[in-house]
Every structure is written in C-alpha cells, then in structure tokens.
Design a protein around this nucleic acid. Structure first.
Length: 113
DNA sequence: GGCTTGACTAATG
DNA sequence: TCATTAGCCAAGC
C-alpha cells in the first residue's frame, strides 16, 4: 500500500481539493484538469486513497457519474454521503446532482506560489 | 529503469 | 442506463 506522500503530485491534489467549498462537489477528472492534466484522474483517486490528512475535504470528490467511489469500503462511502448531505448536497438515489453541485475550479486558487 | 496497479473517463453497443 | 473496452500516467517494487 502506498505510503504517505505529502509532496509532488499528491500534494497538488490535496491543494486543489482544499479549494472546493462546502456544499459543492467535484470529480476526479475535474481535479486532474485543475492540475493541468485531465488524464490523471486515476491518480487523483489514488492520492486520496493515500490521504491521511483530515483537513482535506476528500468527501467532496466523486466520480464523473456523481457516484461515490471508495475502493469497496462501504463505510467510507456512507460517511462521504453523510458529510455531503450535511453540507447541503442533494443526493438523488445514490448519486449526487452534479448539475447543481459541481464546482468550477478557479485557476490560481490552488497555486501556492 | 521497467513492469504492475489503480477512489477514473470517454466512447461504443 | 448499464456493460465492456481502450487510454493515460504517477507511484511502488
């Protein structure tokens, strides 16, 4: 299993996720795009899988279908849904209404330089 | 330095 | 809307 990586690609992922405000959600692809590479959506998920920093709102990151992923850990998926609902995100069946809650990243927000 | 893995996405039927 | 296939690329070993 991947060790904690607090720098490099993962660090950027965390920085981007940090810019997502409460009440909004984003997709792995969007985060990847915000990083400059729309193809690295899988790595975004991987970065979050290795995440251990509670300050990162990982629960606001879902897949392009509006569904919650979670490596098969239903516990985490349930928590994620609960957290989002508390923030005002509307769930329709088992999916988030991306049209209403998808967050648009602002260039420069996650850039820390 | 090369192969395997993977919280994905988009396209196709 | 669902199932299958192909592509992409960093991190780990």
């Amino acid at each position: 299993m991947p060790r904690v990586v607090t720098k490099g690609f993962h660090a950027r992922v965390y920085a981007v996720v940090h810019t997502v405000p409460a009440g909004f959600v984003t997709t792995y692809g969007d985060v990847a795009a915000a990083l400059g590479s729309p193809r690295v959506a899988r790595h975004v998920g991987w970065a979050l899988a290795a995440l251990e920093d509670e300050s990162v709102p990982w629960h606001r990151v879902i897949n392009a279908k509006g569904e919650i992923s979670g490596r098969g850990e239903l516990e985490r998926a349930d928590l994620q849904r609960t957290l989002l609902e508390l923030e005002g995100v509307v769930f329709r069946n088992h999916r988030v209404d991306l049209k209403a809650h998808r967050y648009r990243f602002v260039p420069g927000e996650a850039e820390e330089r």
